[in-house]
């Protein structure tokens, strides 16, 4: 019988330093692992532990995936010690992935905070690879400080695509920063899309998701069209171990992205 607790070996091909606290690990998998944007994998360090990440790379390359990691806890700190050539394990993919069918034919506002842009990049690649699938892609991204903006070198390329725009902001003024200052929610005031028809997809800290969702509904988005990455401590990935539930749903199986309407139906789901 297949053992889904046993990871597949993977080789760290490259480590990209994105920001002082965020690194991207380029992984060469022993076998391709086909995944949909938004599905997550468990990255395993033998004898240390495992943590869930949504690949930041395109699903069109299932044998060579990129995982972008913020050093935030025990496992992620150990991951940041890895160099090219290290052996790790990968399990997955798990979860539903982004609701692409909901996005088709609509304007899509992508709202990211900090390392939350990582899973969204996989979605962006998916949308970029299918011209015309989304009517427009508007990227709103915020980070604490200029040096914490993830994938900085790519914004210009993204914005150069037809029907794609990128706006960034940082939380507090910083020397040498001439861009916008303020939380990412400030980028949603007067957002330039048909709010009754557009969809939004957001990933970031939970407190950010809460206010992004409220703001989007305030400016006219339908709660059913706002998708939030409700990332919790997904561990087994199979709906067994019991720590990632939101109401009756296990995010590892039924998520991690839920619509704001689904989230609102669960008491205190967003604190």
């Amino acid at each position: 019988m297949r053992n889904d607790f046993l990871p597949m070996p993977a080789l760290v091909e490259d480590v990209i330093v994105e920001t002082p606290t965020i690194r991207t690990f380029v992984l060469q998998l022993a076998e391709p692992m086909p995944f949909r944007a938004g599905q997550f994998v468990q990255l395993f360090l033998p004898g240390v532990g495992e943590a869930p990440f949504t690949p930041s790379s395109s699903p069109s390359e299932p044998g060579r995936i990129e995982v972008t990691v913020l050093a935030a806890g025990r496992v992620t700190a150990a991951l940041h010690e890895l160099a090219a050539g290290a052996e790790v394990g990968v399990r997955g993919p798990f979860g539903r992935g982004y609701p692409l069918h909901e996005l088709e034919g609509h304007e899509v506002v992508v709202v990211g905070g900090g390392v939350g842009l990582a899973p969204l990049r996989s979605l962006l690649y998916t949308l970029f690879e299918r011209p015309g699938f989304a009517r427009r892609v508007s990227i709103k991204y915020g980070a604490r400080a200029p040096q914490e903006l993830c994938f900085r070198s790519q914004y210009a390329d993204w914005a150069a695509r037809p029907d794609v725009d990128v706006t960034t902001t940082i939380d507090r003024p910083s020397a040498g920063w001439n861009g916008r200052v303020g939380l990412v929610t400030t980028l949603l005031d007067g957002v330039d899309v048909d709010v009754r028809d557009a969809c939004a997809v957001s990933c970031g800290p939970e407190i950010m998701l809460k206010f992004v969702a409220r703001k989007l509904v305030d400016v006219g988005f339908r709660a059913e069209h706002v998708f939030l990455s409700m990332n919790r401590n997904m561990s087994c990935g199979m709906g067994i171990c019991g720590r990632c539930n939101v109401g009756s749903r296990y995010l590892c199986k039924d998520g991690p992205d839920l619509s704001y309407a689904e989230v609102q139906a669960v008491p205190y789901a967003l604190g």
Binding site: G47, C236, C241, G242, R243
Partner: peptide, 16 residues
């Protein structure tokens, strides 16, 4: 049936 997936080293190998 909640369980903690706990990783430990066992010599050169690892146990889950």
């Amino acid at each position: 049936h909640c369980f903690l997936l706990h990783d430990v080293r066992a010599g050169d190998a690892a146990l889950r």
